[in-house]
Design a protein around this nucleic acid. Structure first.
Ligand SMILES: [Mn+2]
Ligand SMILES: [Mn+2]
Ligand SMILES: [Zn+2]
Ligand SMILES: [Zn+2]
Lengths: 143, 143
DNA sequence: TTGTAAATATGTAATGATTACAAAATTAAA
DNA sequence: TTTAATTTTGTAATCATTACATATTTACAA
């Protein structure tokens, strides 16, 4: 239950002006940690804010994402999914029902620093994706 | 330099009928390990096989991918990229030039089995993506 | 307070990667 | 050969995302 005040502060901390729409979208992500798509966010919020445009949802999500306030997940072949929980963690996507769940990951198993040195690169983001069948779907596929 | 014969055998091993077009696409992936998109593959091959349709490239890539003969990378927000090298490894994508390079990864850092038990899921695929700036681009972004 | 510029939001049109579909061509095999 | 199955092709549709122009809201100086 992220309050409006907390959400406003969160955005401000990322130097994002907390407009009414931005607060609504950020708050939605906090309260619905299911990695929704832009369209799902819009559908859910337009029921409460009938004037909310889809463009604003897209614009806001890229703004938040670029500022580092949210994460953009490329786990799905068709659409981007968004995550308001930005602490380092991995994701599992069920190939049958599409559900995306959080999975813990050891922060230092990924060896960022050593990879950066080895390849002379700068790593700014890391994503670990697992795909397969969730506990509800695995039976349907002889597992 | 993957020969046509080796490529044909490779497809057969995955129970894929080695048609002329399929061999060409698979061979292209073997010889161009730069993780091309469907469009890049088509553009390169249509110069040699003028009748090759883009639909065939798309169809073949999903066929190969479903059979496990190639990997489909969702590292890019805009397009899918393909990899003919299927042994477990991670990828780094430069946010500036878009280049995707292979990165070694410790096979057992990902703890597949323990995650499967913990969440009661089946994991059939794992992708590790790093994003940032490559050695050629990092200077342009004060790193 | 009022006026004006900057920032933000909106609606519609365009883009472009991918897929659907039906017809044509090729291959298998009866 | 004939016929059926597989594969390829070309075109049209889909649909998530972006571009763009306009409208609205907010900031802030006079
Ligand atoms: Mn998450
Ligand atoms: Mn690779
Ligand atoms: Zn499932
Ligand atoms: Zn680069």
């Amino acid at each position: 239950m992220a309050s409006i005040e907390k959400t406003k502060q969160y955005l401000t901390d990322f130097k994002i002006h907390p407009s009414f729409q931005r607060i609504a979208i950020m708050k939605y992500l906090f309260e619905n940690p299911v990695h929704p798509t832009a369209d799902e966010i819009h559908t859910a919020l337009v029921a409460v804010i009938p004037t909310l445009s889809k463009t604003t949802v897209y614009n806001t999500l890229s703004l938040l994402s670029q500022a580092g306030a949210i994460k953009e997940l490329t786990i799905d072949e068709k659409q981007l999914h968004y995550d308001g929980y930005i602490r380092e963690h991995a994701h599992f996507r069920c190939n049958n029902c599409g559900k995306i769940i959080d999975v813990a990951i050891d922060n230092d198993t990924l060896k960022i620093e050593s990879l950066e040195k080895e390849h002379n690169i700068i790593i700014t983001d890391t994503q670990v994706f697992y795909k397969g069948y969730c506990n509800e779907c695995k039976n349907k596929f002889n597992y």
